[in-house]
Each structure stands twice: as structure tokens, then as C-alpha cells.
Design a protein around this nucleic acid. Structure first.
Length: 379
DNA sequence: AACTCCTACAACCGCGAGTAA
DNA sequence: TTTACTCGCGGTTGTAGGAGT
């Protein structure tokens, strides 16, 4: 059984409002108000319009102090910031912008803002990508000078057949940022890489080959995988002697040796928009995905945005500090009644550009280390 | 000039929430 | 508690006008 119509569809006019209709509606409401019943209002004033249509016309165009067009930069930022935080709750967003209607903001976002932001984002990501590629390349050259074993593996990827990387065992999502060349400092970075691939060291300070637990039964993996791990461990052991870096700066993992799944092996990675309860995570992921795929040339970025994460240190996770990258944990505490904090809080992203800069893109496949090389165009 | 395509935005539709009887 | 009704919201569609060919 269908829903009962709100009015007699056959006897109501549809389409654009005439100036006469506008004048009639406006004059009546200014004099008598809506009377608390939009459905009966059009009959009272002799308009052949649906009550809902009258309400929409009044709210969006006829009521006083309505602004149309000419969105300011500040308004853009507010819209973006709120959209990133609460999604397409246009009425809530409109409430933060005096004179703007939800319909106006919705149209503005769909037709202009989304595209405008996409252009900015693309430029930033291209610049960032080329910066990272240069640093990454430099790091690999440096590393190859230090260890022949390692370069035997890496050269295979970068120079011969970058797309035919060995089948690493299935391990939990690796943390892209710990593979960031800027963070990969000798043995510390290698150790972190291995940890993020699902491995585990018995002690933080122990970097010997024997203390390393492979993420899965290594015998079941290919020889090249084994060699990769072994080479990494060798590099780690040899450089460790000459360098006493403090590993405690890196997050420990919860690798579960009993099943090799790694458990929650990336404890400091969590979804930037996950509030645990209200599915914003999925909503926003979809929205971001939509942004990314808007331009097919960004397909590789889309792939990487399969995971869109913030990273926080153990410390910020534990104490909910507002410092650094703890925005996500802070965000999860924000209630709907505290909407202004979503726009103006210094903890929160002030605008979309900043948001993009703070976001850490995490490749979701277990080959992220190698995928990174391909992503950087190191062939 | 005529046609097509694109963009912006006004308006509609259907649904869920709220409320009064 | 149930039902009928209205309100308000978000997604979608329709259309006018501009740009491009």
C-alpha cells in the first residue's frame, strides 16, 4: 500500500513560481504567519500549490534575510569542514551560515565546491608525490651503497620488473607512513617496516635475526619472500651495531604468533572519521571516494584512499591530547550538540586543504612497501 | 543561426520523525 | 498503544540559460 498523497496532485500547479504567487504567499505569511499548518495554507490564500511547495518557496526564497550566491572563502571553509565531519547534513551546515538555506548549500556543494576542492587537492597530491619520490629514491640509493643484499632485492623491484613483486604472505594493513622515506632511518625504519608487515621482535632493543618472528610460517612463502625478510634482518643487525637508535619511538605491535594474523597489529592506526557507533566512517569513506573518482586520472589515488587514516602516537591516543595528529580521537568525543567545535576548534581541520594535508594515505594491500615504489614511479 | 552539451539552481518526491487525537 | 497527519530533510529531477561547435 502506497503512501497517501499530501495534496490533490491533479489540482495543484507545479514548476516555477510566478511573481504573483510569490507576492500572494509572502503577503499572507508576513501578515498572518503560517498558522502552523502548511498543508491548509494554500487553500486559505487561493493558491493552487501543494503545502509543501509553499513551505519550500517561503523557506528558500521568500523569507527575509536570505542570501543567494556569492559564497565567501570563509563560508567555503565552514561548509568543507562540516561536510568532512558530519557529511551531507545540509540543514545542520546551513544553521551555521546565517542567511543560507540547506538547499542553497547543497546545490553549491554539488555544482561548484566539490569540483573546486578536487582541483586543489589534485595539485597538492601531485606535488607531494614528486617530493616523496625524490626522497625515496635517494634513500634507496643510500641503502644500496650500504648493503648489497638489500639492493639485490630492491633493485629487482625498481629496475627490472616492478610489477612482478613476490607474493608476500597476507599480513595486516601496513602503515604507509612508517614506510615514508623521511621516517625510514636505517635500522629503525627497517625494523618498523618488518613489524608493519606483521613480524615481531622479542624485545625492542633486540635486532638479531633469531629474535625476529615472521608474520606467517616462512617456510610456506616463496624463497624470494624469505630472502627479503632475511636481507632486511641482516641489514638491521649490521647497522644496529653502529647505531644505537631508540626504538621506543615506534609503536609496538600486537602480533599474534599463534595464528600469524597479526591481531591488531597497527594499534596506532585508526580511521579518522570513525566514531565507533554511527557509521560516519562508511559515509565519509564513500564521500571521499566519490571525490577521488571524480577524475579518472586520479585512479591510483582512489585506490590508495581505500583506506583513509589518521595516525596518532600512543601518547596522543592514551591521553586524548589535542596535539599533532590526534584529531581523530578528539573528534570521536564531539557530540552533535557541539557543532561549532567541528567548525572552529583548533583541534579540528580548519579547511579542506589542511584536512588533505593531515590525512595519511594508507595503501591497503600488504605489498605497500613495494607498491610505494611503483607509486613513486621507480621503475 | 542552429544545434548540442553543460552548468546552476529551483522545485519535487519520498521517507523518517514527531505529535496530537 | 495505535493511527493519522504534518513537518523537515536529503536525494533527485527538471529546466533555463550560457558556452561551445
Amino acid at each position: 500500500m502506497g503512501r497517501a498523497p499530501c495534496c490533490d496532485k491533479a489540482n495543484v500547479k507545479k514548476g516555477p513560481w510566478s511573481p504573483e504567487e510569490d507576492a500572494t504567499l509572502k503577503a499572507y505569511i508576513e501578515k498572518h504567519g503560517t498558522g502552523g499548518n502548511w498543508i491548509t495554507l494554500p487553500q486559505k490564500i487561493g493558491l493552487r500549490r501543494c503545502g509543501k511547495s509553499c513551505r519550500l518557496r517561503w523557506l528558500n526564497y521568500l523569507r527575509p534575510n536570505i542570501k543567494h550566491g556569492g559564497f565567501s572563502e570563509e563560508e567555503d571553509n565552514i561548509i568543507c569542514s562540516l561536510y568532512m565531519n558530519i557529511g551531507s547534513r545540509w540543514s545542520i551546515i546551513a544553521a551555521q551560515l546565517p542567511g543560507r538555506t540547506d538547499n542553497d548549500i547543497k546545490n553549491y556543494w554539488n555544482t561548484r565546491l566539490k569540483k573546486k576542492l578536487l582541483g586543489k587537492q589534485r595539485k597538492q597530491q601531485e606535488a607531494q608525490q614528486s617530493r616523496r619520490a625524490a626522497i625515496f629514491k635517494q634513500e634507496m640509493i643510500k641503502r644500496s651503497e650500504n648493503n648489497a643484499n638489500f639492493v639485490n632485492i630492491s633493485a629487482g623491484f625498481f629496475n627490472q620488473n616492478p610489477y612482478n613483486w613476490p607474493e608476500l604472505p597476507v599480513v595486516p594493513v601496513a602503515n604507509y607512513q612508517t614506510h615514508d622515506p623521511q621516517l625510514m632511518q636505517d635500522e629503525a625504519s627497517i625494523k618498523t617496516m618488518l613489524i608493519n608487515l606483521g613480524g615481531r621482535f622479542s624485545h625492542d632493543s633486540d635486532t638479531s635475526t633469531t629474535s625476529f618472528q615472521y608474520p606467517v610460517d616462512i617456510s610456506s612463502t616463496s624463497s624470494s619472500d624469505h630472502q627479503f625478510y632475511q636481507s632486511s634482518i641482516d641489514v638491521l643487525a649490521s647497522t644496529s651495531a653502529a647505531n644505537s637508535n631508540n626504538y621506543s619511538q615506534f609503536p609496538s605491535t600486537n602480533f599474534d604468533a599463534s595464528n600469524g594474523t597479526g591481531g591488531s597489529s597497527s594499534p596506532t592506526i585508526f580511521h579518522g572519521l570513525d566514531d565507533q557507533n554511527n557509521n560516519l566512517q562508511a559515509d565519509h569513506l564513500n564521500q571521499l571516494t566519490e571525490l577521488e573518482v571524480y577524475d579518472n586520472s586520479l585512479a591510483h589515488q582512489h585506490q590508495q584512499l581505500g583506506g583513509f587514516y589518521y595516525q596518532a602516537s600512543e601518547e596522543t591516543l592514551n591521553n586524548g591530547s589535542s596535539a599533532g595528529t590526534s584529531t581523530a580521537s578528539a573528534e570521536s568525543e564531539i557530540s552533535w550538540g557541539d557543532i561549532n567545535s567541528l567548525v572552529y576548534s583548533t583541534q579540528m581541520v580548519a579547511d579542506y586543504e589542511t584536512c588533505c594535508q593531515q590525512a595519511v594515505v594508507v595503501p591497503q594491500d600488504q605489498h605497500s612497501f613495494f607498491a610505494e615504489a611503483t607509486y613513486f614511479g621507480l621503475k
